[in-house]
Structures are given as C-alpha cells and as structure tokens.
Nucleic acid binder design. Structure first.
Lengths: 138, 138
DNA sequence: ATAAATGCAAAACTTTTGCACCCGA
DNA sequence: TCGGGTGCAAAAGTTTTGCATTTAT
C-alpha cells in the first residue's frame, strides 16, 4: 500500500513532535482541530495507526484504558504517577546490551524497549512536615 | 472503607494466581464462571480494581485497548510480540539500584517498575531458511 | 444491623468501520 | 485517472455505574 500525503496527517505528526507530553488521541484531535476545524476523530485514529506502522511515532499503553502516543521514538523511560496519572520522561538510558541479551536468550527480535517506573510524583506525595502545613491531598 | 470477603473475590484472585499468562478481564470472567456461573462481568471489574488497590495484583497496560492483569507482583519484565500480541515473561532482573537512583533524582516515590521489550516472538518471525519451507506468516 | 458486595442492565467511553465523496501523485 | 485519504455516523468493544437485593461481619 502506497501511503500518500495529506495536511491532516502532517498536522497530526506536527502536534505530536511539538510536545513532550504523552497525549491521548482525543487531545491530539483537539489540538489539530485548531488548525483544521472539521477534521474527524476517525481520521486522527487512522493516521496515528499509519504513523505508528511507519515507525514515526510510538504508541504507549500505560494509561489504563486510553492509549497514549509519543513523538519521541528513541528508546526511553517513563515514570507514571499512580495517583494523578501523569507520565514523565526519565533520563536513565537502558543499555542496549540488555536488549541484545534478551533477544539471544529468548530467540526473539527486539525492536524497542520501554521502562516504566510507577509511584507517586512530587506533587502527589503526602507532605507531613510539621512546620509548613500544606493542603492535604488524599 | 472496610473491605469484606466474598467467594467471588477469592475466586478471581485464585484464577489470577494460578496462571502465568496475562489475562484480560474478560478471560478471567470466563474462567471464574466455570465455578460461579452467574457471576457478573461488573463484579469482575470491581474486584480487579480492589485487588489492584490492595496491591495483590498488577494491572498491565501493555496491550493496546484492553487491560491485562498479572498475579505476579514482584518487579519483572515482559516481552510483547507486536504481531500476535502475546506477552511473555522475561527473566532479566532489573537492579533495585536503578529505581533508587530515579527516585532520588526526580524526587518521586517508586513503588514498582516494569520493563517492556517489543518485537517479534519466535513464532512470528519470518523464516527464510531455504531447506525447510514453513507456512508463510504475514 | 449495617455497610460492603453482587447481579443485572443501562450508560459512558474509546476505537473501529462502512460508505460516498475528495484529492494527491 | 485511480487509489489512498477524509468526514460523517453507526457500530463494536471495553469499562463503569445506578439500583435493588444479598451477604459477611
């Protein structure tokens, strides 16, 4: 299948490359709508699929039900806050060595790897310091 | 909220502990139904949520749209085949050191970490050996 | 007794798809 | 022109929820 060009596809990729958040399809849709008001959500999904297959973007599956996408396709790591759900990039390069070892040991081909840390982000940590009382966060 | 006991919850946990696959809610539902035929899917979801909050199971978000659950709550690694979607356990322990370094550097609390490798599993690899012709898998 | 848990069904969401029309190569 | 791309709306699939009833403590 020959993939063709379209302003919709270009706009979607542009949005994704222009953020370091890890947006959902719906968020991307809203952003692109600012430039192309009558774009449809179906088109966004179709293009995300194509872009993913072309290796231009990454689909993350971290956030429970909704998929998130990442314009950064180099192997990298994430931290996910279990409370607020935000996803942060982590600068902690994983050695390529490990991927090779896994490939050899299991007889598989490894294209990519993602490391996910889970916990509580700075914002969501219960602050118990007696001096400066803060708003209580459950 | 005081959590109470129920045979449904016990059965769900039992199913999850008794497999090393990474089943979807629906698969768990079908298994439990063999013992408790009139259990409802809603109950399965509600219990998976409770068990997850109690830290007794893990929710994986690897598989695109559907959530998968894991009865193995020790930090461990997965390999996901991008073709057939199967998820395999990988025996490649990640050093606790790394998690500590991340926690310190980012000011977060790390409860868990998951490493996901992506690629093609043995079964899905294009086999080009000229001697033994195999069924062609796209 | 009382509050949590359940079954059922409806609702809410996310993602996919069929179809007629449009547009890029 | 021709086949891929689009918008629209319907459909499919997963997960959540309201409510009356049951059940564990």
């Amino acid at each position: 299948m020959m993939t063709r060009d379209s302003k919709q596809r270009r706009a979607i990729l542009e949005v994704l490359k222009g953020t370091n958040s890890h947006p959902t399809a719906d968020w991307i849709y809203e952003q692109v709508r600012k430039k192309i008001p009558n774009i449809s959500l179906g088109t966004v999904y179709r293009n995300l699929k194509v872009l993913k297959e072309e290796g231009k973007i990454l689909e993350l599956d971290f956030a429970g039900t909704v998929s998130r996408f990442d314009g950064n396709i180099t192997p990298h790591q994430h931290f996910k806050c279990e409370q607020c759900g935000r996803i942060f990039d982590v600068d902690e390069p994983l050695r390529q060595r490990t991927a090779e070892r896994v490939a050899l040991k299991m007889g598989v081909k490894v294209f990519n790897h993602l490391l996910e840390f889970r916990g509580l982000c700075q914002h969501c940590q219960p602050q118990a310091s007696p001096a400066d009382k803060q708003e209580t966060r459950l």
